[in-house]
Simulated assay, not measured.
Amino acid sequence: MKSIRLGAGAGYAGDRIEPAVELAEHGALDYLVFECLAERTIALAQQARLRDPASGYDPLLEARMRAVLEPCRRNGTRIVTNMGAANPLAAAEKTRAIARDLGLTGLKVAAVIGDDVLEAVGAGDYRILETGGRVGDLGNRVISANAYLGAGPIVEALARGADVVVTGRVGDPALFLA
Rank of each mutant, 00 (worst) to 15 (best):
N140A: 11
E70D: 05
A97C: 07
L118E: 10
V121A: 15
R73E: 11
I42Y: 07
A145H: 05
A20I: 01
G133C: 00
A90D: 11
A24M: 08
G150C: 05
L37R: 07
E25K: 15
L102A: 08
F176P: 05
S144N: 11
A178C: 13
A157S: 08
R127I: 12
A90C: 11
D15T: 00
D52R: 13
A99Q: 03
L149C: 03
R134S: 04
A111Y: 08
R73K: 09
R16Y: 01
R127D: 07
L44R: 12
V33L: 07
R73P: 00
I113P: 01
A13Y: 03
A85S: 12
G27P: 11
E39K: 14
L32M: 02
G152T: 12
G7Q: 04
K108T: 15
I154G: 03
I154T: 03
Y126I: 15
Q46L: 01
R96L: 15
D115H: 14
E22W: 04
L175E: 09
A28W: 03
G76Q: 06
I79F: 00
G122E: 08
Y31T: 01
G124Q: 11
A54W: 03
N75Q: 13
A45F: 06
G76I: 08
L29W: 10
A24W: 02
P173K: 05
A90K: 10
A86S: 13
R169T: 07
N87Q: 07
D172G: 11
V33Q: 01
I143C: 06
S144E: 11
L37F: 07
A110P: 04
Y126C: 10
R141A: 12
L29T: 08
V121L: 15
N75G: 03
G114W: 08
M65F: 15
G171V: 04
E35V: 01
Y31S: 01
E130R: 13
E70K: 14
A86K: 06
L89K: 14
F34D: 02
V165I: 06
A85V: 00
G122F: 00
A178R: 11
A48M: 12
L102M: 12
V117P: 01
V33E: 01
L118M: 09
N75W: 04
S55E: 14
V80L: 01
V117G: 02
A38F: 06
E35K: 04
C72L: 05
G84T: 08
L37Q: 12
G76A: 07
P53F: 04
V112R: 03
G103Q: 02
L104S: 09
S55N: 08
R100G: 03
G124C: 11
K94A: 15
A151K: 14
V117R: 15
V80C: 02
A147F: 06
A157T: 04
A110I: 03
H26Y: 13
R73C: 10
G106K: 13
V117M: 15
S55M: 13
N87W: 07
T95P: 10
R78I: 05
R160E: 15
R49Q: 14
G114E: 09
